[in-house]
Design a protein around this nucleic acid. Structure first.
Lengths: 103, 103
DNA sequence: TAAGTATATCGCGATATAGCGATATAAGCA
DNA sequence: TGCTTATATCGCTATATCGCGATATACTTA
């Protein structure tokens, strides 16, 4: 069980709902879903993720930027390449739920 | 455990990813999240949900139409009123994941 | 230093979505 | 039959998002 700051609120206030909606919108894209799925297994570079999704590297970079912005991912440089990884601990559960429904 | 048609696929094909993304986009709205949350507890009319979200009834109706379209909800008439309810069995799990992260 | 590779950013046109007033439909009631 | 209430749809504007070519930055290697 991951650490929770408080005693599990109810997610009724608009601010939390807006935040949840924003993160869901970020996740709600076929290529980004695929990227998250891969990153839950291992770290990957921009180019590797781009190739797996059959998209241009600069598009993958953009998707990764968005997901980094909402706290899903972080990255670290290794020479020319940059490795991305999942840092949001709940992402694994959420993806599991989605896979259970759509997989 | 709900019935699954097949042996849990991997959600790697584009078609499934697109479908998952579309449903997530439908869910990714603060008022719709609130509505789903309420409907997981009980059935409600359009007007009740509109009031709970502080939005006009015709806006709630539109949100409900979208969620019905992607298979989350169904409705039944009772005189003038129409009661909506959740019919997608995985929605409960998905909301629980979201609440765990953002609540 | 110059050329090549990996990644990121910019700016644009196309498309999608949001929100809203106006209007429509349908049921209940005087 | 008219009047009211509940819900749904239409048409529009504003805003957001998408995908892409062009360009920029940073690192590597010759």
């Amino acid at each position: 069980m991951p650490i929770s700051k408080t005693k599990k609120k109810k997610l009724t206030d608009m601010k939390s709902l807006e935040q949840a909606a924003e993160c869901l919108r970020t996740l709600a894209h076929p290529h980004r879903l695929r990227i998250v799925q891969m990153l839950l297994q291992s770290e990957y570079t921009v180019g590797e993720l781009a190739e797996a999704c059959s998209i241009a590297p600069h598009m993958a970079s953009e998707h990764l930027r968005k997901m980094q912005h909402c706290g899903f991912l972080e990255s670290q440089k290794d020479g020319q390449r940059r490795y991305y990884r999942v840092v949001e601990p709940h992402l694994s559960n959420i993806l599991a739920c989605i896979e259970q429904r759509f997989g």
